[in-house]
Amino acid sequence: MKRISIIISLSVFYISCNNSKTTHGDSLRVAKLEKIEIPAGDTLNIDLVDLKAKGLLINTQVVTVNDDPVYHKTKKFNALPLKELLEKFSSIENLNAANTKVVFECEDGYKPEMPLEKLLSAKAFLAVSDVDAPEGREWEQILKDGHAMKAEPFYLIYAGVSPKDGDFKWPYNLVKIHFAPLNENDAMLVPKDATAMTGYNLFKKHCQTCHAINKIGGKMGPELNFPKSVIEYWKIEDLKAFIQNPASYRNDVKMPTLGIKPTEVTEILKYLEYMSKHKI
């Protein structure tokens, strides 16, 4: 493949990272990277598993997270400041945070994303192991809705961020970090019908991390629109009830109860109905 030298001439990006006791680079500084060679057409990916295999994710510090939203208790992790990691291993010199999103790719198909500008407003760390793990293990097991899940290989954590702030993503089982234009998939997913916009915004907030529409989104749960829309083979009333309480329909279901209100479910179904007429 032809290789090209890429420099993205956008505004400089920043992250301030520290742990609960010691400040690490609170004064924001410019990220300076050498120009690198990457294959033509390649995206802005950081393969965390590959970096670990090469012995590049070292010199960690202990970071304490009070009221961890995944473990639901105070936790300590061996972690790296995310800003330093991005500066060292990203293929960009400058990034316009206002026009960029970060997509977190997890081994289990979970695929949350958030505006880079939001990420930069916090003190973020990449946890590479769990200080509180049982002897002989790198991580304590996660128990979620009765299911045992693994945090490894990596977990994105924050210092000083409330677990109740849903705008911040805490992906565990993390393997890659991907940068993309903020409105990358708007043409494929944003409805042109204003009556479906509320449902789109709710779907993006609650559903897209696990489910894809037209092959765009998470892979933890099933694709909902292609080749056949979920509303074409589910009874609408059952679908409404399932979204609100999945465990009432399926034993040992992995989909959690998300606390979506009945009126919000109705809006989401309006969006799914719209998208059923706009397949790839």
Results as ranks from 00 to 15, higher is better:
Ile15Ser: 06
Asn19Gly: 02
His24Tyr: 13
Leu28Pro: 01
Ala31Glu: 03
Lys32Cys: 03
Ile36Lys: 14
Thr43His: 14
Leu44Glu: 12
Leu44Arg: 13
Leu48Trp: 10
Val49Ser: 08
Asp50Tyr: 02
Leu51His: 04
Asn59Ala: 11
Val63Pro: 05
Asp67Asn: 15
Asp68Val: 05
Asp68Glu: 07
Lys73Thr: 12
Thr74Val: 11
Phe77Arg: 07
Leu82Met: 13
Lys83Phe: 12
Glu87Tyr: 06
Glu87Thr: 09
Asn94Leu: 08
Ala98Leu: 12
Thr100Gly: 09
Phe104Ser: 11
Cys106Met: 01
Glu113Trp: 12
Met114His: 09
Glu117Cys: 04
Lys123Tyr: 04
Leu126Lys: 01
Val128Ala: 10
Val131Met: 05
Val131Cys: 03
Trp139Gln: 03
Gln141Ile: 14
Ile142Glu: 01
Lys144His: 14
Tyr155Arg: 01
Leu156Asp: 06
Ile157Cys: 07
Ala159Cys: 12
Phe168Arg: 11
Asn173Cys: 10
His178Leu: 07
Phe179Pro: 09
Ala180Ile: 00
Ala194Phe: 00
His211Pro: 01
Lys215Thr: 05
Ile216Leu: 11
Ile216Trp: 06
Gly217Gln: 08
Gly217His: 06
Glu223Lys: 03
Leu224Cys: 02
Asn225Lys: 08
Pro227Leu: 10
Ser229Tyr: 02
Ser229Phe: 03
Val230Gln: 14
Val230Thr: 12
Glu232Trp: 10
Tyr233Leu: 01
Ala247Lys: 13
Met255Phe: 07
Pro256Gly: 08
Thr257Met: 12
Ile268Met: 15
Leu269Ala: 05
Tyr274Asp: 06
